[in-house]
């Protein structure tokens, strides 16, 4: 009887060990998958957020003479003009010091790139215009570039 009891205890211990190892393995695998999914979601978000924001802002401001591109303190920028109570204001979108930035100020206010508000980390924004077609090459914080085209319905 003693021998049977000993074998039973050993079997129970082995099963307990297998149980423990399986639990650790499944936890490790789960954590790994979760980390991968999280990284992918973050990377995908940072890749599309900036370019989607810029194109949405351009579409929202697409009125006759309201959209133009140009240089803002040495950075490529999109200028979106609007009039409030007869006063001209401009929203300037650009990348400066590792950030996608936005500045809303009176037109010709004399403000520079440092005065804008930081939106999300970004590396660069190159803008070119061919007729009514804007080409935006946005580089996110991880160095991945994406090009988006925006056709100005109003003619810019």
């Amino acid at each position: 009887m003693k021998a049977r009891g000993g074998a039973g205890t050993a079997a129970s211990l082995i099963v307990a060990c297998v149980f423990g190892v399986a639990m650790l393995l499944s936890l490790t695998t789960g954590a790994g998958v979760y980390r991968q999914v999280q990284q992918r979601v973050e990377s995908s978000a940072s890749e599309r957020l900036g370019i989607t924001y810029i194109t949405a802002k351009i579409h929202a401001s697409d009125a006759d003479g309201a959209v133009r591109t140009g240089d803002f303190g040495g950075e490529d920028a999109v200028f979106l003009e609007e009039r409030i109570d007869g006063i001209a204001f401009e929203t300037v979108i650009y990348v400066h010091d590792g950030w996608l930035m936005e500045l809303f100020a009176g037109k010709d206010s004399g403000m520079g790139p440092d005065d804008g508000q930081q939106l999300i980390p970004a590396e660069g924004l190159e803008i070119s215009q061919s007729g009514r077609l804007l080409s935006l090459e946005y580089t996110d914080e991880n160095g991945r570039s994406e090009t988006a085209y925006v056709f100005l319905r109003s003619g810019g």
Binding site: R48, A148, Y149
Partner: peptide
């Protein structure tokens, strides 16, 4: 979760590419 996140990345890229293509088609 893994498959969905991969599909979501691909779909996002597809939408961006399609949007740009549509803008160029209009231009």
């Amino acid at each position: 979760a893994e498959v969905t996140s991969r599909d979501s990345v691909v779909l996002n890229r597809a939408v961006n590419e399609a949007r740009s293509a549509a803008e160029c088609f209009k231009a």
